[in-house]
Computed example of a mutant assay.
Amino acid sequence: MSVLELTAVSKRFGGLQALSDISLSVSPGEVLGLIGPNGAGKSTLVSCITGVLRIDGGAIRFGDRDIQRMPQHRRARGGIARTFQKVRLADQLTVYENVAAGLASHWFARASGWASVFQPLSAGGIAQSVNRTLERVGLTDVSGAVVKSLPFGRRHFVEIARAIVSEPKLLLLDEPATGLTEDERERLAALVQGIAAAGCAQLLIEHDLELVGRLCHRVTVINQGHHIFTGTPAMAQSEPEVIRAYLGMNQLIGGGSDDARR
C-alpha cells in the first residue's frame, strides 16, 4: 500500500488554476522527486498535502485514510512532516529545543505556548528521541547552541532533525539543498538515503538535478500546474515533453547508479 496517494488533485486561486488533475503516489522507503520549473506548482502541492491549503477537486489518501478534510495538526500527528523552502526555526531557542518542538503535536496535543511545550522536557522518552535524532543528523556538537548563531547550512539540518524526530511515515523536503556547501550536500544525500532505508516515504522538491538523479527512485514532473511525466530519472532524460518544459533537464538529471536508487 502507498503511504501517500493523490488522485486528480486540483487547486484554484481565483482565476488562476494552480494545480490541475495531479496524481502521484509514494511508497514506504521510496524517494519520489517532484520537479519542474519555478512556478510549476510544487510548493502549492506540498501545502495541499499538509493541509495548509484545501484542494478544490480530487482526493488525497494517507495510508488507508482520506485526509482531504483533515486539519493540518491532525495530519502532522498522523505522521506527515515537512521542511520549508525558506528555513523556519525559532532563532532564539537552542538546537535541542527546536528539535524537541517537533514532538509537540504528538506528545502535547493541547500545549499552549513554548512554556507548556518544554515544561516536561526532563521526561526520558523525549530526551532520548531528541538526542538520538541530533546524533543521526550530525548536530550533537551544537545541541546547546542558539539557532541564530549557526551558519545557514546547519540550520537546514536542524529543520530536518525537527521534522524526523517524531519518526514520520512521510517526509516532504522542499529544496533542502539550497545554499549548502559541497560537504553539506553530501551529508544531506546520505541522510535522505538513511531515512529511506528506515522505511520513511519521502517527497523531494529540488532544483539540484544531479542530486535528484542520485537519490530518487522515480520523479514526477509538473509544469504550469499539470502533470507531464512520472518515471525513473533515466527515463526523464529522453522524454520530449520533460525536455521542452525544463530546458536542459535531459543533460542534468542523473549521476546515480541503479544500485544507489534501490
Rank of each mutant, 00 (worst) to 15 (best):
K42C: 09
Q17M: 05
R12K: 11
A18H: 04
V46I: 15
G39P: 10
V9S: 03
C48W: 04
S23L: 14
G39Y: 01
S47Y: 13
R12C: 07
I22H: 07
A18Q: 04
V46D: 06
T44Y: 00
V26R: 06
L32C: 13
F13A: 08
G36Y: 03
I35H: 05
F13T: 07
G39R: 04
S47K: 15
R12L: 06
G15S: 15
G39M: 03
S27G: 11
D21C: 08
V31L: 10
S47H: 13
S47G: 10
G36S: 02
G14Q: 07
P37N: 09
G29E: 13
T7Q: 14
I22A: 06
P28K: 08
N38A: 03
S27N: 14
L34M: 06
S25C: 11
V46P: 04
E30Q: 15
L45D: 11
A8G: 10
S25F: 13
V9M: 01
V26G: 04
G14V: 09
T50V: 14
L19N: 13
V46C: 06
G39S: 04
G41F: 00
R12H: 13
S25W: 07
R12V: 12
E30V: 06
T7V: 14
L16F: 11
G15V: 13
S27P: 00
I22W: 04
L16Q: 07
S20P: 00
I35Q: 03
L32P: 11
A8L: 01
G15T: 14
Q17G: 00
K42M: 11
G33W: 05
A8C: 11
Q17D: 07
L45S: 07
P28W: 01
P28Y: 00
I49S: 05
A40P: 08
S10E: 02
V46E: 03
I35G: 09
P37D: 09
S47A: 14
G29Q: 06
K42D: 08
S20T: 14
L19E: 08
N38V: 10
